[in-house]
Amino acid sequence: MLVQDVMVKEVVCVEMDARLPEVKTILQNRGFHHLPVLEDGRLVGIISDRDILRLVSPFIGKVNEQARDLDTLNRAAHQIMTRQPITVKGDAEIKDVVNWMLKVGISCVPVVDDTEAVVGIVTWRDLINHAKFEF
């Protein structure tokens, strides 16, 4: 089975200058865990919900909120993204992607074409949904 057989083809992405509140809203409202970041239509990074949790102050909206807590919301996508994410092509074998995800400890792989444009995304959930188990 190939990546193109299981990937999600309609991928929501953000530009490098998107601000943290926009990124956070997209992740929350869409139920995503990963958001590709583009520059001129090319993949340059990826943001995970864990990146957001690590950066956003837990004091925002609380009585003890400080100005520095609110400053975290002014960050741009390019400041918080993982640069040069691991990617695959649509014709890659699923077994190779699974092995690679397990080896490097990632839960999502953007699928790109020859111009580095995002054409899909594969997450561990997509792989589980398409797995065939024998009991």
Rank of each mutant, 00 (worst) to 15 (best):
R50G: 15
K62N: 11
A131P: 10
D49W: 06
A76Q: 01
D51F: 00
V44M: 13
D91G: 03
R42G: 06
L53Q: 13
D126W: 09
H78C: 07
K9V: 04
G90N: 15
E10F: 03
F59V: 14
L27V: 04
G45R: 12
M81L: 02
L127A: 14
M81F: 01
T123P: 09
F135D: 13
N99H: 08
I60D: 08
L73Y: 08
T72A: 08
G41P: 09
L53E: 14
P85S: 13
T72N: 05
E10N: 06
S57L: 12
L20M: 08
T82V: 08
G45T: 14
E15Y: 04
V98P: 04
P110R: 10
I106N: 02
N64T: 15
D71C: 06
V23S: 01
P58W: 08
V3H: 08
V12N: 00
R19Y: 05
L35Y: 05
V11R: 10
V112E: 00
I106E: 02
N64A: 14
D17G: 01
Q4A: 12
K132V: 15
E22D: 03
V98Q: 05
G105F: 11
N64M: 12
D71R: 10
D69F: 11
D126F: 08
P85C: 12
K9T: 10
F135K: 12
P36N: 07
D91W: 04
V8C: 05
I94K: 14
V98F: 04
V14E: 00
V112K: 01
A92N: 14
V23H: 01
M101G: 08
Q4N: 15
V98T: 09
I47K: 06
R83L: 04
V11H: 08
A117W: 03
L53T: 15
V111A: 08
K62A: 13
T115W: 02
V104P: 05
R68D: 15
V118L: 07
A77N: 00
E93A: 02
T25M: 01
